[in-house]
Each structure stands twice: as structure tokens, then as C-alpha cells.
């Protein structure tokens, strides 16, 4: 079952096509990375999902239903550009945002107290937002995003501007929500975070989706048959019949197997030679590499057209 289904969604501002015929599906309960370079159309797409704007064409389904005005209460959205009413008291502010998401006054108050004690900030209720540091304001922003227990959580660059301690704090909360079954969209261009957190990704460039799927599958798809071997002894001379050496040190070697040759063939060859293998790893491309490659590839035809 998919929590989110995007079907041929297009959105243009004037002549600038921000989202161009994008389709993908997001499995329920997954952590989903929405990737793309700056200006790729991520925010435009998120604004369509959060019902902030409507799509020109195409349809968005949330839990199998066409997106409608009751859905914002099931979605929690933390935009990249954070913002709160500076002069409001923290408690009142959270109460206001929670009630706009459909919580009653009592439910909202209970939730706020729960999060205040969880983050050990019980005495913040009467503080004004502007009295808090940027990092503290981010915490409040995060609480405001998840206070109504959304089924779909959308985080746009959630860790930007956070110190390592608060980053971990928020990461733990994201993990916990994931364990409790919340579906999470994670929009970023920081690949190491994606690799760490996401199970699925979709890569958008210039309004189009360039790549989508499970992180593991994508990495497998883009692997180049490169292996790293640590060993003791002498390598066979005729190894270049089946592979090319990428990098060589005295006790370790990185090689690229030729197309169609299984890694077992290589292993057999080495063992036969009497090489003692201490470690054997396939080197998968990092998402970062895939990302850059794909963005460059998808950008090229555009440039040629002009």
C-alpha cells in the first residue's frame, strides 16, 4: 500500500515549468528521500503535496484518496525556511498551530506538555519565541510539525542550522516516528544523510524525475563491478585478463571486473594461485556519485537543445 502516489503532476509558473510530469509512489511507513539540486522543483512538488498550491495537471493521492482539503490535518510539514511568530509565547504558538491542525484545546495542551517534558523544556511555555536561540526555535518548529501525529511527515532540509546534539535529538525522533509507522519524506541535497536515513529515493532535476526506487536497488543498478581485495601473497600475473586494476597498494588492490565476469571467477583464480584473502568487498557507488552523474546526464540534453 502506498501512502502517496504522484501521477503525472505538472506545475508551471508563467513560462517556468517547476514540476514537469512527475510520477512516483511512496510505500507506507517508509522513509523517502526527495532529492535534487537547488531549484530542481522539490519545494514546488512539496507545496503541491501539502495542498499549499494546486497542480496544473496530474493527480496526487494520499492513502488512495485524491488530495482534498481534509488532508492537511494528516500531513506535517517543516519547510526549509523556518518561521514562527516572533512575538508570541512558545506555548500559545504551539497551541495555535496544533489547533489549526484540528486538535482540541485539551489534546493540544497535553501534547505540548508531553513534548516539553520530553525535550526538557518545561519552563518555555511563557517565553517569547524571539527570546530563543535559532536552534531552540528549530526545536519548537519541529514540535509544531509533528504535534498532531501526522501520517505523512515532510521535512525539508530538517538538519540545516542544527548543532550535532540537536541533530541527533531530531534524528532520534524521526527514527521513533518511523518505527511507529509514520511515512516520512525527507527532502535534501545532502547525500550522506540520505544514505544513512532513507530507504527509497526519488531524484528530481529540472522538474522531472530522473531516478527512483529503493536505495539498495539503485546502488546495485549503478555498480560498476569494482571490488576491493585485501590479501597476503603474490597476485597472479594474468589477472588483467578478467579485470583492470584501479588502485594498487602492497597488500590491497581495487579492481574493476570485466563485463559478464562473476566475482567468484576472480576469487577462484586468486585462491588457485595461493593468495590468502583477508577481505573482499564490492565497492558500490555512493549516492553522491550517482546523484552528480545523473544530474549531469539529465542536464546535458537540455543544454544541447538551447
Amino acid at each position: 500500500m502506498n501512502v502517496l502516489k504522484i501521477e503525472n503532476v505538472t506545475k508551471a509558473y508563467d513560462k517556468n515549468v517547476a514540476v514537469n510530469n512527475v510520477s512516483f509512489e511512496m510505500p507506507k511507513g517508509s522513509i523517502f528521500g526527495l532529492l535534487g539540486p537547488n531549484g530542481a522543483g522539490k519545494t514546488s512538488l512539496i507545496r503541491i503535496i501539502t495542498t499549499i498550491t494546486g497542480a496544473d495537471q496530474g493527480t496526487v493521492y494520499l492513502n488512495g484518496e485524491k488530495l482534498n482539503s481534509s488532508h492537511p490535518e494528516q500531513i506535517g510539514y517543516m519547510p526549509e525556511e523556518r518561521g514562527l511568530y516572533k512575538k508570541m509565547k512558545v506555548g500559545e504558538h504551539l497551541l495555535y498551530l496544533a489547533r489549526l491542525k484540528g486538535l482540541s484545546k485539551n489534546e493540544a495542551t497535553n501534547e505540548i506538555n508531553h513534548w516539553f517534558s520530553k525535550f526538557e523544556i518545561e519552563d518555555w511555555w511563557d517565553k517569547k519565541v524571539q527570546e530563543l536561540s535559532k536552534g531552540m526555535q528549530q526545536k519548537i518548529q519541529f514540535i509544531a510539525t509533528i504535534i498532531h501525529k501526522p501520517k505523512l511527515l515532510i521535512l525539508d532540509e530538517p538538519f540545516s542550522g542544527l548543532d550535532p546534539i540537536n541533530t541527533n535529538l531530531i534524528k532520534d525522533e524521526i527514527d521513533e516516528m518511523h518505527r511507529n509507522g509514520t511515512s516520512i519524506i525527507f527532502s535534501t541535497h545532502r547525500m550522506e544523510q540520505v544514505e544513512e536515513i532513507c530507504e527509497y529515493i526519488v531524484l528530481i532535476n529540472e522538474g522531472r524525475n530522473v531516478l527512483e526506487g529503493k536505495v539498495k536497488d539503485i546502488k546495485n543498478h549503478f555498480k560498476e563491478n569494482i571490488f576491493n581485495i585485501e590479501f597476503e601473497g603474490e597476485l597472479p600475473e594474468n589477472i588483467d585478463e578478467i579485470a583492470t586494476v584501479v588502485k594498487q597498494k602492497s597488500q590491497s588492490i581495487t579492481i574493476k571486473l570485466q563485463e559478464g565476469i562473476d566475482s567468484n571467477v576472480l576469487l577462484k583464480k586468486l585462491i588457485k594461485q595461493g593468495v590468502h584473502i583477508t577481505a573482499f568487498n564490492e565497492i558500490l557507488p555512493s549516492l553522491n556519485e550517482i546523484f552528480i552523474k545523473q544530474v549531469e546526464q539529465s542536464a546535458k540534453p537540455e543544454i544541447n537543445n538551447e
Binding site: 501539502t50 499549499i52 510539514y77 519547510p79 523556518r82 518561521g83 514562527l84 498551530l97 518548529q141 509544531a144
Partner: peptide, 13 residues
């Protein structure tokens, strides 16, 4: 300028 508006519009019209 506060950018609160994006949060607000994700809840209300």
C-alpha cells in the same frame, strides 16, 4: 518575511 506563512498555509487556505 518571517516565513511563518508557509507553515500556516500548510494548515489553512
Amino acid at each position: 518575511t518571517n516565513r511563518i506563512v508557509e507553515v500556516m498555509i500548510s494548515s489553512v487556505r
